[in-house]
């Protein structure tokens, strides 16, 4: 068995054993079923909501949850093993730094991916009765794909954090700050810039700035695929940009790989 696979299997089994897979799947399922069924309760009716408003509300909730879950799952991956001494031991094995990193990424990435597919797949099934399959599949397919990429991206970022510090508690603190920055601060700052500086940001440069935030990319891709009437806020401006979904997806993909490459570099320079 290749060492990458051995590490991946171990990490995946850890995810099962610690009930990570079950809990994440349950959270996603409850969230998505609830939103697609009760989402219209505010407007006084109960029942399945339109597909585009379901996706819109799902994206705005998932954008908070998924990064948090991915960071929680992975922030102690390396620093935890460093504290218990197994990281040093693993490095004396015929196993390179990159192989260990990739193995962990595959194992924990599989947990996130599977939970996303199963959890959000639930509500897709629920909606089959209401929406036509031709519209449902692409919309949910894109949502699940981007949600997975968002999760994987924050898993990679968690590895960068986990490898940069020497204490678990510090990693947890940094993870929280990183989450807060990408999910809240970044958008608030963007909004402030948009409102405050009159000729500062046109639509094109706004979208370009959003490339620096995977969470914004996630929303952008999903909302751009919908009817714009369900969308408001900064994103409504950005949506009508000329970027194609494919190129946005590609940038998200880069957001998965870039932190992973940085993590690998840090790992190689790390002294134990």
């Amino acid at each position: 068995m290749s060492p990458v696979l051995a590490v991946a299997i171990k990490e995946f089994q850890d995810g099962l054993r610690n009930r990570w897979l079950v809990s994440i799947t349950a959270i996603f399922a409850i969230l998505s079923i609830g939103l697609s069924y009760y989402g219209s309760a505010a407007s006084g009716e109960l029942g399945l909501v339109s597909l585009s408003s379901t996706i819109a509300s799902l994206s705005s909730l998932a954008v908070f949850l998924i990064p948090l879950i991915a960071l929680l799952l992975s922030y102690d991956s390396f620093v935890g093993e460093q504290e218990s001494g197994t990281l040093l031991l693993l490095l004396t094995y015929p196993l390179s730094h990159t192989q260990l990193l990739l193995g962990k990424f595959l194992g924990q990435g599989a947990i996130i991916t599977l939970a996303t597919i199963l959890g959000f797949g639930c509500s897709a099934l629920l909606l089959t009765g209401q929406a036509e399959l031709g519209r449902l599949l692409p919309a949910f397919g894109l949502f699940i794909l981007t949600a997975t990429l968002l999760g994987l991206c924050f898993t990679s970022i968690a590895y960068v954090i986990s490898l940069s510090v020497n204490e678990k508690s510090k990693a947890a603190g940094i993870a929280l700050v990183v989450w807060f920055f990408f999910v809240l601060v970044f958008d608030l700052a963007l909004l402030a810039a948009l409102v405050g500086i009159k000729e500062g940001l046109d639509q094109q440069s706004l979208v370009q700035v959003m490339m620096f935030n995977p969470a914004d990319l996630f929303r952008l891709i999903n909302l751009a695929a919908l009817d714009t009437k369900d969308v408001n806020g900064v994103l409504a401006v950005a949506i009508n940009s000329s970027w194609s979904a494919a190129s946005l997806l590609l940038i998200m993909f880069a957001w998965v790989l870039a932190p992973l490459a940085i993590a690998s570099l840090i790992f190689k320079r790390k002294t134990l």
């Binding site: 060492p3 054993r17 218990s84 094995y93 015929p94 196993l95």
Partner: peptide, 27 residues
Amino acid sequence: GYLPENVSFYDQLTGKQVLTYFARLKA
């Protein structure tokens, strides 16, 4: 073969699982 000082293995795994993991890594 290396035995580090103060190593604490994966607590939630059984002894057999821990050793199986290391055996796989060492082929």
